[in-house]
């Protein structure tokens, strides 16, 4: 029979670790000064971490681009179900992400500001939008190379109309 021997843990080594987020030390009300100082340290590092994570999120679409480009390359130029699926994904995800940009960045918002406001984390959000537009551009470029963009006059030919001629010829 084995026993877990917690007493052997060297607690001094871990004494200064910040408590996990959301942990409130109910037992510390007796000594309030020292924990207040410690919490100031932990909240500042916590904010930096949030910043860092927000930047990660902002740049994540750009990091996926090489993978997406490879997928596009593999799916080929034909109009098939796979290539169409990838192209649709490329075209739709930027819009979806931009629409949900505030909620996506809400967890990383600093405590001082309103979490769902557009003005929080402005730099990260701009970078995020730019990266998503990059994805969209890749998708459009793919569409263009597949001939799906109505850029030529031929694409608008069906909408052309002609009126009756002013003169009438009889045959």
């Amino acid at each position: 029979m084995t026993h877990l021997d917690y007493t052997s843990i060297d607690t001094n080594k871990w004494k200064n670790l910040p408590p996990p987020p959301g942990f409130t030390n109910f037992s510390s009300h007796a000594n309030s000064r020292a924990p207040a100082k410690a919490s100031a340290v932990t909240s500042s590092s916590y904010a930096a971490l949030k910043q860092k994570r927000a930047w990660d999120l902002a740049l994540s679409p750009a990091k996926q681009l090489p993978m997406q480009a490879f997928m596009l390359y593999m799916s080929g130029g034909g109009v098939q179900i796979f290539s169409m699926g990838i192209v649709f994904m490329l075209l739709l995800t930027p819009f979806k992400s931009i629409a949900g940009i505030n909620s996506a960045f809400a967890p990383f918002a600093p405590n001082t500001s309103h979490a769902n406001s557009s003005s929080t984390l402005p730099l990260q959000k701009i970078a995020y939008i730019a990266c998503n537009l990059l994805t969209l551009a890749v998708g459009l470029w793919k569409c263009r190379s597949m001939g799906l963009l109505p850029t030529g006059t031929g694409d608008w030919l069906a909408f052309e109309t002609r009126g009756p001629a002013p003169e009438i010829s009889l045959f």
């Binding site: 001939g147 850029t151 030529g152 006059t153 031929g154 030919l157 069906a158 052309e160 002609r162």
Partner: peptide, 16 residues
Amino acid sequence: SFGHVLGNRTTLYKYL
């Protein structure tokens, strides 16, 4: 159709 669409999606408009 009022025209003939070429391979590069430009159009030759028919003389009608």
